[in-house]
């Protein structure tokens, strides 16, 4: 079965040193389903989201692979066309609501800009659509809020606005990049529920980048466990929590805090597991020859 988003054999490296950052990543995301991308810091989970949305830092170069969005390989489309495609079919829910809204622009235009400039909607239609999504994310007095500046709103409100903005154009794919990490714990839960509800209602495919396995168990259908830029386990959420296959997955699960038994939780990932995973990655690197081979 071919998903709405298909990442095949995606490898990326650092432009200067040639260090590998992503190692033949395969990810399939059927329309309307939710996949979690988990792993520790630096595992490359955010980078996959950025690669899909075409906003990788300049220092990162994609060496090979395909990113098929709605059956079109984004890496083969010219840049201007790629931007338009991504803007029309995908959206980002960013990590930090305090920095993701432009402080010198009012809320309204920050929601409607994509609809008007990229999708060519009439201004009035875009404005009424913005009101609609703001109501959907439970923003009180949406007309007033649209005229406010970001600094006049709380972090939780701003994240709701960013979620509304992401859903405004009815994208088929949303990348949520740790959307609750920067929020208070009490707000986290509401935001998570909100994203889940909207996703289900709109039938959006959701790529959920997180380091929090608790979040994964609540929101996702499937998940990919990343270690050093390599997918070490690709499974369903049910199977993962019942019986994780890869030793690193098992260690990761063991490291998750549990309310039921706080003393037994917070196990660090054993050194042996890290060594084994690194060896696996090294073996993988040894066998790897970039296609085309133009780069040393």
């Amino acid at each position: 079965m071919s998903g709405f988003l298909e990442i095949r054999g995606l490898s990326a490296r650092l432009a200067g040193t040639g260090q590998r950052l992503l190692r033949s990543v395969d990810i399939s995301l059927p329309a309307g389903s939710v996949r979690g991308l988990v792993g520790e810091s630096g595992a490359g989970k955010s980078m996959i989201g950025k690669a899909v949305l075409g906003v990788l830092p300049k220092a990162v170069e994609i060496v090979e692979g395909e990113i098929l969005l709605d059956e079109q390989d984004l890496l083969k489309v010219p840049p201007a066309e790629r931007r338009r495609l991504i803007g029309a079919k995908a959206a980002l829910i960013p990590q930090d609501p305090l920095t993701a809204l432009n402080p010198s622009r009012r809320i309204g235009p920050q929601i409607t800009d994509r609809l008007v400039d990229i999708l060519g909607w009439e201004k009035a239609r875009a404005a009424s659509r913005a009101l609609e999504v703001l109501v959907e994310v439970s923003i009180p007095e949406p007309e007033r809020v649209m005229r406010l500046y970001p600094h006049e709103l709380s972090g939780g409100m701003r994240q709701r606005i960013l979620i509304a903005s992401a859903f405004a154009a009815e994208p088929k794919l949303i990348v949520a990049d740790e959307p609750t990490t920067a929020l208070d714990v009490t707000v986290q839960k509401q935001i998570l529920k909100l994203i889940s509800q909207l996703q289900a209602r709109h039938g959006t495919a959701l790529l959920f980048v997180t380091h929090d396995l608790g979040v994964v168990s609540k929101v996702c259908d499937t998940l990919s466990v990343l270690y050093a830029g390599k997918v070490v386990e690709d499974t369903t959420v049910q199977r993962f929590f019942a019986a994780p296959q890869h030793p690193y997955s098992q260690a990761l699960l063991a490291a998750t805090p549990r309310h039921t038994d706080p003393a037994a939780s917070l196990q660090p990932v054993p050194q042996a597991v890290i060594d084994a995973a690194m060896a696996e990655v090294a073996a993988d690197d040894a066998a790897w020859r970039p296609q085309g081979g133009a780069h040393g």
Binding site: L53, G54, V55, R83, R84, I86, G87, A88, A90, A91, L92, P94, A100, N102, D113, R114, D117, I118, L162
Partner: peptide, 8 residues
């Protein structure tokens, strides 16, 4: 970065 993902 968010503006770039919007297609700008």
């Amino acid at each position: 970065v968010l503006a770039r993902t919007k297609g700008y």
